[in-house]
Amino acid sequence: MPDVALDAIDRRILAEVQREGRISNQDLSERVGLSPSPCLRRLRLLEERGVISGYVALVDPERVGMAVTAFVRVRLDQQADRQLATFEAAVAGFPEVMECYIMTGDADYQLRVVVPSLSAFEDFLRGKLTRIEGVSQVTTSLALRPIVYKTALPVGMVSP
């Protein structure tokens, strides 16, 4: 169950700002079928409630020299709270780690790591990741190329 009740207009607003974060309020209001003032009020309310947590520019990794994406599964030797907190604090400070999830199954964590080269990835593994206290196993899969990459949540799929 969602934290915030959203109606169809809220969902249209979310879909549009996810598609084009720099859209003007005038264009947004036209696309969602509201006049500008109520549209802006709804947008601000979505921001205040934390439904919209921020705005970003999406950067093409290849064009800025970050050609290697690796998915790394990590097992710890223990799942004690202290060890989990130590691991999580360490990876949160690594700029190469784009995402980190605590997992069920055969790995404790899954990371998405982006680096410029395989040698940079080796440096990351040997110099950072495997040096974290409690890391007992690391398994890596290298991405050859993205097939589907989305940043917009399918907010229209959730029924009001």
Rank of each mutant, 00 (worst) to 15 (best):
R145E: 04
E122P: 01
D106C: 04
Q79E: 13
E96C: 13
N25Q: 13
G127E: 05
V32H: 04
L142P: 08
L84T: 08
R112Q: 12
D108F: 08
S117C: 05
Q83W: 07
R75C: 05
V51Q: 00
P116G: 15
K150C: 00
R131L: 11
V4L: 09
Q110P: 00
R42F: 00
E30W: 07
G33W: 09
E133Q: 13
F121H: 04
C100I: 07
I102F: 10
P154N: 11
N25H: 15
L58R: 11
I13Q: 06
R31S: 15
Y101L: 12
E96A: 15
P2V: 08
G21R: 00
A152W: 06
D60I: 01
M1A: 14
V135G: 07
D81S: 14
L153Q: 10
T69Q: 10
I102A: 15
P160N: 07
Y55L: 06
L111P: 05
A107P: 05
G93W: 04
L76W: 02
A70N: 06
P38Y: 08
Q83M: 15
S29V: 05
L118G: 11
E96N: 08
A89I: 05
V74F: 03
A92Y: 09
V32P: 03
D81H: 14
S29W: 00
V113I: 02
M103P: 01
R22S: 13
L76Q: 01
A80S: 13
A80E: 14
R42E: 09
M103D: 03
F121C: 04
I13C: 04
N25Y: 12
L43S: 01
M103W: 02
L46D: 05
V59G: 02
R42L: 01
